[in-house]
Amino acid sequence: MYPIVDHEVLAPRVHRLRVQAPVVAEKAKPGQFVILIIDEKGERVPFTISDWDRDAGTVDFVFIEVGKTTQQLATLQPGDRLLSFIGPLGRAAEVDRYGHVVTVLSGYGIAATVPIIRALKEHGNTVTTIVQAPDKERLFGVHPLEELSDDLILALGTKGDGMMESTTVAIRKLLDAHPKKPVDRVIAMCSLCLMRVLSEMTRPLGIKTMVHLTPVMVDGTGMCGACRLSVGGTNRFACVHGPEFDGHEVDGWEVLMARRCTYADESILQQGFQCRGCSQW
């Protein structure tokens, strides 16, 4: 059993949990994830590791309440125990000295990308971070990003307070300045739609764009094939070959988006989740 040692509410429906799991903390790297099960009747669900402390043996992740399991997670308090907590799964995000890296974040990616940005800085990169959130109330986790990034752009959908109106406008400006002010790499952990759009924007410029893909997973160790997707013409399993992929090589976006929503009609709470091209609506 894996005790919860801390639970913080970051914004409405957004929570950070800290779990005692020394075996996971021991090997965790930026961009990896865990699969947890709450109790005997629970499902296996993946969450990206947002922080860890090897000495204390703890692992953090941030989640958004969207359905049955995340709602149940939101009720757990320090002292409660998870039945299962497996990880670190997947490959670590690629990190090297690239030059100027732009990271694009939304949802839980705002927290889950922090270890990647920290590693990018340790490798001497300049980092511009773009954060997308629906509005100021639902924005969270800005503080560490401010500290780590050389430049932080908030895209909150509404103008004012020095905020951009949309992520694509912000990224367009950066790309327009390229190559005079070069963008050497883009790393995105945000909605599938946005990651796809970003990949199309950077493709003509040949800027390597890494996307963090989240198909539905069951075992998370390469056994079930639920997370398969087509990358560069071959089938890859996101849980072992990913979750980070080169966005220009992903060629099954539409199928991926459809498969991601197989169970969306079961209990989805998130407003505005419904998107064009979705197989379930």
Partner: peptide
């Protein structure tokens, strides 16, 4: 083969 509702036996049986 990756269309929605095409399962591997492993996924189908594991679920």
């Amino acid at each position: 083969e990756n269309l929605n509702m095409v399962y591997s036996a492993n996924e189908f049986l594991t679920r």
